[in-house]
Write a protein that binds this DNA or RNA. Structure first.
Length: 254
DNA sequence: ATGGCCTCGGTTCGAGGA
């Protein structure tokens, strides 16, 4: 089973790229973030015609998440029951016995800002949700755009990013707290030292210069560690015309 | 030179992203 995550920065703009990519890579499950569309406008038919079930939770202009799957999706939870939120940033479902949680963690904008406080509260709410889910499920996958580069290895130039949002101690501490709930960074299990990124700024030729951050992740509960065959970042779609600023991350399980 | 880009909504600019 091949599982992936991709912040597409508008599903309307990226629809053809997503369909092309999931077919080419034989993706079973794709978690999407920043769909930026109301539910009535989500392209369900296009994905159904491509052979995928869809579950989604969107809003106008901002945010929005979705799960596409070749296999049935059950026990769907929209958003976080323990963190009331108008913003659509989370969707959870069970596929082939795996509990899959798709998240679009807030950006935080500026350290100390209201948006930053919201990010930390959101993360606190996520911890509560994960603790509750762990009591019901064993094989869990937490994936999406975390908007956190967990270590200095995940930043092209730590000096440039020092004390900025996405790399701050407060944010990294939450990432560690998630790991204390026995979630592991699948990419790092398989690639302990590699400096590879999932996001590059549209400006300043950041992609061409590989000035990126690794902020999109696939975390797995310890019960499925032995099942991982591969976890990698696919830079190819970032080279396509009119790309998302994020690259997809893929993981293959036995 | 301290910016540069992309998307959306709703009109051609401002907000938000990271």
């Amino acid at each position: 089973m091949k599982i992936a995550t991709w912040n597409v920065n508008s599903i309307k703009v990226r629809l053809n790229q997503v369909i092309k990519w999931i077919k080419k890579n034989n993706i079973d499950v794709l978690c999407l973030q920043e769909t930026k569309t109301l539910n009535i406008n989500f392209p369900s038919k296009e994905f159904f015609d491509a052979g995928y079930y869809v579950k989604f939770s969107g809003q106008k202009t901002y945010n929005g998440v979705a799960i596409l799957s070749k296999h049935e999706i059950s026990d769907v939870v929209i958003n976080n029951p323990y963190f009331p939120d108008d913003q659509q940033r989370m969707i959870t479902g069970t596929i082939n016995g795996f509990r899959i949680i798709c998240v679009y963690i807030p950006n935080g904008q500026l350290i100390g800002s209201e948006k930053f406080k919201y990010k930390l509260h959101w993360l606190e709410g996520l911890l509560t949700f994960l603790e509750k889910e762990k009591k019901k499920y064993t094989q869990m996958i937490l994936t999406g755009d975390f908007n956190i580069a967990p270590t200095e290895k995940d930043v092209h130039d730590p000096e440039v990013w020092k004390d900025q949002v996405l790399v701050s101690d407060a944010e990294r501490k939450y990432f560690e707290k998630i790991c204390l709930l026995k979630f592991q960074d699948a990419f790092r299990i398989l690639n302990p030292k590699e400096k590879k990124y999932t996001w590059w700024d549209y400006r300043q030729l950041a992609f061409q210069k590989n000035k990126g951050l690794r902020i999109d992740h696939i975390l797995i509960s310890s019960e499925i560690e032995k099942k991982i065959l591969n976890c990698d970042i696919d830079k190819a779609p970032r080279k396509w015309e009119q790309p998302s600023d994020h690259a997809p991350v893929t993981m293959t399980l036995i």
